[in-house]
Design a protein around this nucleic acid. Structure first.
Lengths: 201, 201
DNA sequence: TTAATAAAATACCGAACGGTACATAAATGT
DNA sequence: ACATTTATGTACCGTTCGGTATTTTATTAA
């Protein structure tokens, strides 16, 4: 097994890169991509700009690295939802966990992937498109899961897997907006409960 | 009746203020509050910065004036929805018109009030809070309408008017995000149709 | 002990940001 | 004709933006 290389040559880095990326993620999460300034990021980390650029590249690369930690960490609950045994439980798990996640006070409210870059602007175009792809990717995973459910018989044959997935995505994205407007976990749960009433089974 | 005062003293303004505000609105709509720069606004209007500031005040006041035109114009469809005779038709009208509005190619996609200022940042804080109030106000109008529907009997007595209103708001806000990701009118309509299946009546 | 390496801190770059001082031009009131 | 009023164009304000050149410092390899 590979041992961590503690004997790197040159002056040792004074900050931990993974911990730094988690802090960076929080700033992007709160401020959005364009709203997060390099100055705020470096102040948060307690380092100078050249150190930031040397370690992570420019702002866009930095965002992508923080985003990778986001999808590998906080958002992993989506896989748990998809692995539920029935379509109904998939939907229920997805929405309930989203409601809990969005209102968890251990991190900024709402979803980074939904809110970090919604508007059209010249220099955030790549980031906006990247986040759009992520949203579509999650939606597509849900759709495939519901296709499987149709074959397994826990969704009626006439159910539209893509519409069901898009409905969940839309509700998820709306909940992310709601929570930035101050909606509570309890309120989100009531929405979820109502939304699941129309679920076909 | 008051006649339009065509004989104002001093050098006449070279642009029409209402038409200018409509153009300003489009820019804020596309770019968001912070993403819309004074430079882009003045270039769009074909005027210089001092003219803009003299006519409308600073960026925040300018946004508020453009927002007033937004709520008086494009978003007036909400009143039409609220005036429908039954709760179900209110919900149906609200969502269908939102789907049409969001995908209308005559103006930027999505909803200004939902997307213009979602992130937390120092100088857009007032605007963010203002838009949050607007969102809450619309939601509250829906809730009151559904309370009325309960009294009139076209909603069951055990229906929760606030939850129904919040559900519609959430879906509306999610649809606004969906459309900036490229969702079509047809896709939105399928979501709407599905969402209305669970409507109590 | 010295060379090589890599990260640190300082200081700076041009461009864009929101906003304004000031002189000028075009209209009306007297 | 002339003062008054109001909008215009130019030129500028200080600040912040993302990003970097350069020097210094701390470590390892030889």
């Amino acid at each position: 097994m590979l041992e961590k290389n503690n004997k790197r040559r040159g002056r040792p880095r004074v900050f931990d890169m993974d911990a730094a990326l988690d802090k960076v993620l929080e700033v992007f999460w709160k401020r959005g991509y364009e709203g997060a300034s390099i100055a705020e990021l470096t102040e948060t980390l307690g380092i100078n700009k050249p150190s930031l650029y040397a370690a992570f590249g420019n702002k866009e690369e930095l965002f992508k690295k923080a985003l990778s930690r986001y999808v590998a960490g906080p958002v992993a609950f989506i896989q748990e939802a998809i692995n539920q045994p029935t379509a109904y439980e998939v939907a229920q798990s997805f929405l309930i966990q989203a409601a809990e996640f969005f209102t968890d006070m251990k991190h900024p409210k709402g979803c980074l992937i939904v809110q970090a870059a919604l508007s059209e602007s010249a220099d955030s175009l790549m980031v906006k498109d990247l986040l759009t792809q992520y949203r579509y990717s999650y939606e597509h995973q849900l759709a495939r899961r519901f296709e499987k459910a149709k074959k397994e018989g826990d969704l009626p044959a006439d159910a539209n897997a893509e519409t069901l997935a898009k409905f969940l995505s839309t509700l998820h994205q709306g909940m992310s907006v709601q929570v930035t407007s101050g909606a509570s976990k309890r309120e989100l749960m009531e929405i979820v409960e109502f939304a699941l009433k129309s679920w076909p089974r």
